[in-house]
């Protein structure tokens, strides 16, 4: 997504003059997130259809470690808070604060992804592989897609940290931080839905 987020330069000193008054980049990001809703909608539907279909291997209730996942979900939710702080710092043109909060957000995100890797490994050791059952396939597909989204988010955050101080990079940096913030919050919201539907509601 970095292509959408960073790419349109605010050339020269003039601002964006658009028919709606919203910047092109922001409208594009909202549209992209709208499209992503349908992507996760399809994946969640697939999981909900298949979560009870276990011919061999463990059933959903046996492999989920709800306290562990609750903690990692909490970490991800807190990263939304730090993302807000980063956006706020960026809008005040506070490069130090922006860098700090972006880094914290990325670290919290990385903690979540690390937790997911640990969780997947534990599940694998309990006998649930990607191809073990329809439950396994659809579970790993859904949570894997989410994990990839978080990872892409982390890469974007770290790239931002890398370029935030450079003046030769195009674009209004506060807006770029805000756009990646939108993406980050979206990924968090999707996780709340996944956590509820997959972990908390028994199959």
């Amino acid at each position: 997504m970095s292509d959408v987020a960073v790419h349109e330069a605010d050339h020269g000193t003039h601002g964006h003059i658009t028919s709606t008054g919203l910047s092109n980049n922001k409208v594009a990001m909202w549209l992209f997130l709208g499209s992503e809703c349908l992507l996760f909608g399809g994946l969640i539907s697939t999981y909900m259809l298949y979560r009870g279909r276990v011919s061999i291997g463990p059933r959903p209730g046996h492999v989920f470690d709800i306290p562990f996942t609750s903690v990692s979900s909490f970490v991800l939710l807190m990263s939304s808070l730090t993302m807000v702080l980063a956006v706020s710092a960026a809008q005040k043109r506070d490069d130090r604060g922006t860098t700090l909060w972006l880094t914290v957000t990325a670290l919290l995100g990385a903690t979540f992804v690390g937790g997911q890797v640990y969780e997947f490994t534990a599940m694998y050791n309990e006998g649930l592989g990607f191809t073990t059952s329809l439950f396994g396939s659809s579970f790993f597909t859904l949570t894997g897609f989410h994990g990839v989204h978080v990872t892409v988010g982390i890469i974007m955050l770290m790239s931002l940290v890398g370029i935030i101080k450079r003046s030769d990079i195009p674009g209004d940096k506060a807006e770029v931080v805000e756009l990646i913030g939108l993406y980050w919050h979206f990924v968090d919201v999707i996780w709340i839905i996944i956590f509820t539907l997959v972990y908390l509601i028994p199959a």
């Binding site: 499209s35 992503e36 809703c37 349908l38 992507l39 399809g42 990607f130 191809t131 396939s137 597909t141």
Partner: peptide
């Protein structure tokens, strides 16, 4: 809104054909 839905379907089919899932 339609493209992401076929994207999911195509991913599932790819995972079935290339990675051994049974969707």
């Amino acid at each position: 809104f339609a493209v992401p839905v076929i994207t999911v379907a195509l991913f599932l089919l790819s995972f079935q054909r290339n990675f051994g899932a049974t969707f």
